[in-house]
Design a protein around this nucleic acid. Structure first.
Lengths: 182, 182
DNA sequence: ACCTTAGCTGACCGATCGGTCAGTTCCTGC
DNA sequence: GCAGGAACTGACCGATCGGTCAGCTAAGGT
């Protein structure tokens, strides 16, 4: 679909002609179903954003203990695996797509995610753990498309590896000790 | 310069008009100094690639012990900090820019880098450590541009944090123990 | 004084961009 | 059988894309 092109070539680098051709339709037909190119991007990305909002909501509403943190990481990894292309677009193109509604929504969500995982007293390295985990995961999940012809790594292999890695990276950060917040 | 636009908006999303305007010249003048848009990209990215080739060459030519690995990580972090925008472009846009000479050169270099750090017997999680470290570092170094108005994090703060993080991530991978492989 | 050359520019090119619109096809409910 | 609407399309629009070209200006060498 169009999503693959956005992730591979970038939103700006993908033309409506290419989207239409890869879908087997004409450009006019694409614009019949979607009001504009921006609207198409919105409809493509919205399911991923809503899923992430759900996960974050579930996490922030629970008490902070080891079990809920582990649950969050598992949910988050499954989210990454299911919406890997969407995540890649959001992470790597949010800067250039400022102003589009769905992108601004996603950016606010990512900021909230960072706040939930590391309080404002977090040190530079704590914040960077979050950034590296997020950007690194988003990158690795599509790196196969960049450096190999096929994305060969199967999901079954990736899931436990990602969970281990994100646990390592986020464990020291996510520790919300007795102090609840503020 | 043009590099900032490439990193921020993407190569495809940056027009020669914008590059020229931000440099205070006309589009014709830009094309007088650079044969084409692709050639401009090449000249912008080449210094970073050559520096990385130097670092990788120095690493592979030394014996594999803790000291040389630490030296490599320090060099690599300094490289990331110095060429953060270039790295971001290479990491996140290599896929869409296949065919441009400088990009293909960089892709081959990154593959070599991965091979040097984790042998072919490396497990999925080992390879992913490398990918997360690379993609994560590239992402965090420009995430400030995406989510905050200014890239406020000073380099002095970033360097030790990055070294610590990359050491953690790459330490288990880079262990070329006595056992050569398989 | 003259010529060369580097640096730079506006005008222009064909191609393609996102988007509009009138019209065609085809299916469905009556 | 037919009216109506949904799906779809080609032709077309102004704007902008990367790139070419002739020409302008200023500096330097002789």
């Amino acid at each position: 679909m169009a999503l693959q092109q956005f992730a591979a070539v970038g939103f700006a680098g993908t033309s409506l002609q290419q989207i239409a051709a890869s879908a087997g339709y004409s450009k006019s037909s694409v614009l019949y179903h979607f009001a504009s190119k921006d609207a198409l991007l919105g409809e493509v990305l919205t399911p991923a954003i809503e899923r992430l909002e759900d996960i974050l909501g579930g996490f922030t509403s629970t008490s902070e203990d080891a079990a809920s943190r582990r649950q969050f990481i598992e949910d988050f990894v499954d989210f990454l695996l299911q919406y890997r292309l969407e995540v890649h677009v959001l992470i790597n193109q949010a800067q250039s797509l400022k102003g589009i509604a769905v992108i601004d929504r996603a950016r606010a969500l990512i900021v909230r995610l960072g706040d939930a995982l590391c309080q404002e007293h977090a040190t530079t390295i704590d914040r960077m753990r979050f950034g590296v985990a997020l950007g690194g995961a988003a990158y690795s999940l599509v790196a196969g498309l960049t450096f190999f012809d096929e994305d060969i790594t199967p999901t079954d292999d990736l899931r436990p590896a990602l969970i281990t890695l994100l646990s390592e990276l986020l464990a020291p950060v996510a520790v919300r000790t007795t102090q609840p917040r503020k």
